[in-house]
């Protein structure tokens, strides 16, 4: 079985340790959710997996389909099939959405092969329509001046176009109005399948009504402290985090 597997991961930023021995395995075909208080290290986990240069891994490992990815450049990990929908997507001046996604797809092809433009645009427009992103957006610079919700939708658009095998969604639901939440969720659900593993980071149980997870994990102080099924999210919603700390 193919998995994204995090083993006893310890990571720091500067001198400050943030992840303290986190272990978690996401098999392809499953959706896992992570919930946890602000500052518990959820985004850190996502960025360490993606290879953000500011973080240092001090112990542990991350395996993608059995291969350790920690020594790889972020773009190599991405081309292996790892996708991160950022909590705070960056604005890239001068680079249009259409050119950006096209370049990202081109980067996945052998050097002598050119991406077929007509087919590319047909796909792009279809996915944009599904996510209710107006077509004029193709010519806009990536995330520049986008509203919070537009940025999140644009993340899902990129995910849909790049077809990763493992997706990490970092608070993709934050800042979405109720209609957008439905649109984005159905966009994510459309990508679910036997060949895709997903890790959904969220603060709100509500999202998990739309994207129903196979497992729910609770994170505190840089590690997983409790795992369960989707009902765990309901309990958390009703009772807060205090009872976990008491465990």
């Amino acid at each position: 079985m193919k998995t994204l597997s995090i083993q006893n991961l310890h990571a720091s930023i500067g001198e400050k340790p943030i992840l303290h021995g986190l272990t978690l395995t996401i098999p392809q075909g499953e959706v896992h959710a992570i919930m946890g208080k602000n500052g518990s290290g959820k985004s850190t986990l996502a960025k360490v997996m993606a290879g953000h240069p500011d973080y240092t891994v001090t112990a542990g490992d991350v395996f993608l389909n059995g291969e350790s990815i920690l020594g790889m450049e972020p773009d190599v990990r991405a081309r292996l099939g790892l996708f991160l929908a950022f909590q705070y997507p960056m604005e890239i001046p001068g680079v249009t959405i259409a050119n950006f996604i096209r370049a990202a797809l081109q980067a996945r092809l052998p050097e002598d092969q050119e991406l077929e433009a007509t087919e590319y645009y047909a796909q792009l427009y279809a996915k944009m329509d599904a996510l209710s992103i107006p077509r004029q957006f193709t010519a806009r610079f990536l995330n520049e001046g986008f509203s919070g919700g537009e940025k999140k939708r644009c993340e899902i658009l990129q995910m849909a176009m790049l077809k990763p095998s493992y997706c990490v969604l970092d608070e993709t639901d934050s800042g979405l109005d109720i209609d957008a939440l439905k649109i984005v969720s159905s966009g994510v659900n459309a990508l679910r399948g036997p060949d895709v593993g997903m890790l959904v980071i969220t603060h709100y149980q509500r999202l998990l009504n739309y994207i129903v997870p196979d497992k729910v994990h609770i994170m505190a102080e840089g590690k997983i402290v409790l795992s369960g099924d989707k009902d765990l999210a309901l309990k958390l919603e009703a009772e807060g985090y205090d009872w976990i700390e008491a465990l």
Binding site: A50, G51, H52, P53, E73, P74, D75, A78, R79, F83, L84, F86, P89, M90, I92, P93, G94, V95, T96, N99, F100, I101, A103, A104, A107, R108, F141, Q158, L162
Partner: peptide, 21 residues
Amino acid sequence: FYMQQRGLSEAAAMSLAVNGF
């Protein structure tokens, strides 16, 4: 880093930004 996460090498990411500019 954001652009690299999408699969572009560091150089390709910079080229894209410069060419766009």
